[in-house]
Structures are given as C-alpha cells and as structure tokens.
C-alpha cells in the first residue's frame, strides 16, 4: 500500500498536467464567452468532486453510528475536510467566472446559493469536530452530517422556488455542450478525482497517526512520573466533560 502512494502521486501530477494542457490548448474556444469559459474545466470538476466527497461523508457517518468503527469515523472526517477544500474552490472560481460573463460577482441563484449553504453546513461540521473532544466528537459529528444531508434537498427546493418568484437576470451558457468540451471536462474531472484521492489518503494517514500519538500520550498521562494532580485538573477539557454530561 505504501509503495502505491508515490506511484499514484506521480500519476496524478502527470494527469493534472495533461488536463491543464487539454483545458487551455486543446478544448475549443466557446463562442459567446471566449477563453474565460475555460474556467469551466476547473469549476465543474471541483463541484462534482466536492459533492462526491460529501456523499462519502454521509455514508461513512451513517455507517459509524451503526458499527461504531473508528476507522469509518476517520473516513467521514477526512472526506468532509477535503470536500470543504474543493467546495471552497467552487465558490472562489464561480464569481471569477461570473464577473466577466454576467458582469456581477455573485447572484443568489439556486446553484450558487445552495452550494454556499452546503459549504456553511460542512464548515460547521468541521467546527463541531474541532470543538468537541475526541471521545464524543464522532457520534455528534455523525448526527450533524445526517442533518446536513437531510437539509440539502430542502435548501435546494426553497431557493429554487424563491428565485422563480423573483426573476433574475437570465444566466447564459446552457444549451448543449460540444462533445470535445465534454471530453476535456471528463479528463479534468478524472485528474481532480485522483488528486482528491491523494489528499484524502494523506489526510487519513495523518489522522491515523494523530490518533496513535493521542493514545500514546494518554498512556503517558497515566503512567508518567510527574503524575501530580489528577488528569481532571491538568486537563480542563476532561473536567468539563465530567461536569457537563
């Protein structure tokens, strides 16, 4: 497994390079938008990757509540974190694309707004993980992930309806996409998927390592020679959990 990592890394780098070449040189220039349309090859694959990762997070969260397997919990947290990174890319590249094309940075349309809400929900998920201690975080975070997943269709519907009531400047593009564009898009998506996998992999290894260190420190806290006051006094976090059941 460990040998596979550098191989995958090299492969991903090659793919990403090839994908950039495809996106900037090979793909045909769009008629109305011009070259700026090439942002599409970064924006859309990032969105798909983010959604996929959030879906993985949901599956892992449900699985954790059923099986209580700490490895599944690590997978849930890793997919959420990398998902937020890709979602950030979507939210940053979106306005950069919108500005030259629509003349505005942002519009409260369905897709933009629900992606923003999705991002907010998963940022709150990561915050919850950061602010709760590691004994309780998995179950709490899993519950929040399920709530988030239930929320998304409602968010989409409500905003969709809200927008149809209040007409917006018509958003261009649309229509059918040139098959050559499709090909470039898929190549880019594959490259970004590999890249996401790579990041998840490293983050997962980091998380496993963090847990190992934590375990070692826990043992140390119990056996160390400098064991003066109780763990509760030295670690206010534990004391708080005791008092705040």
């Amino acid at each position: 497994m460990k040998r596979l990592f550098p191989i995958l890394a090299v492969l991903t780098a090659l793919m990403l390079g090839y994908a950039v070449y495809q996106a900037l040189v090979v793909a045909p220039t769009e008629r109305t938008m011009g070259d700026v349309q090439r942002i599409f090859y970064y924006h859309v694959p990032s969105a798909w990757t983010a959604f996929l990762l959030f879906f993985v997070n949901l599956v892992a969260s449900v699985a954790y509540l059923v099986k209580r397997n700490p490895k599944v919990d690590a997978l849930a947290m890793v997919s959420a974190e990398v998902g937020v990174v890709f979602c950030t890319v979507v939210l940053v590249t979106g306005p950069i694309w919108a500005r030259p094309v629509w003349g505005i940075w942002w519009t409260w349309d369905v897709r933009l707004t629900s992606t923003l809400v999705l991002w907010l929900i998963y940022v709150s998920y990561l915050l919850l993980r950061r602010f709760s201690d590691s004994a309780q975080a998995p179950a709490l975070a899993a519950a929040l992930a399920i709530f988030g997943a239930l929320d998304i269709p409602l968010v989409y519907f409500s905003i969709w309806f809200f927008r149809t009531q209040h007409p917006q400047p018509v958003i261009g593009g649309g229509g059918s996409i040139d098959p050559r564009m499709w090909r470039v898009l898929l190549i880019n998506w594959m490259a970004f998927l590999c890249f996401a996998l790579l990041m998840c992999w490293s983050r997962y290894r980091l998380e496993t390592m963090r847990r190992e260190v934590e375990e070692a420190q826990a043992l140390e806290s119990l056996l160390g020679d400098d064991r003066g006051p109780s763990a509760e006094i030295r670690n206010p976090k534990v004391a708080l959990n005791r008092s705040g059941q």
Binding site: V117, L127, L128, S132, G148, I159
Partner: peptide, 27 residues
C-alpha cells in the same frame, strides 16, 4: 444538546443551528 458537549457551549449553538435552519428561515 450537541453544543453542551463541546468546549464553548453557548457559542456553538448558533454556529450549528443557523446553517441547517436556512430553508426554514427562508420559508
């Protein structure tokens, strides 16, 4: 109930509640 198990209880509640409540608030 979730936020009372976190370190900064009172701060956590709106941070968790508001994103999930967006469709309800819009409604």
């Amino acid at each position: 109930a979730i936020s009372l198990r976190t370190r900064s209880r009172e701060l956590m509640l709106p941070l968790l509640l508001f994103p999930i409540s967006i469709p309800a608030v819009l409604g």
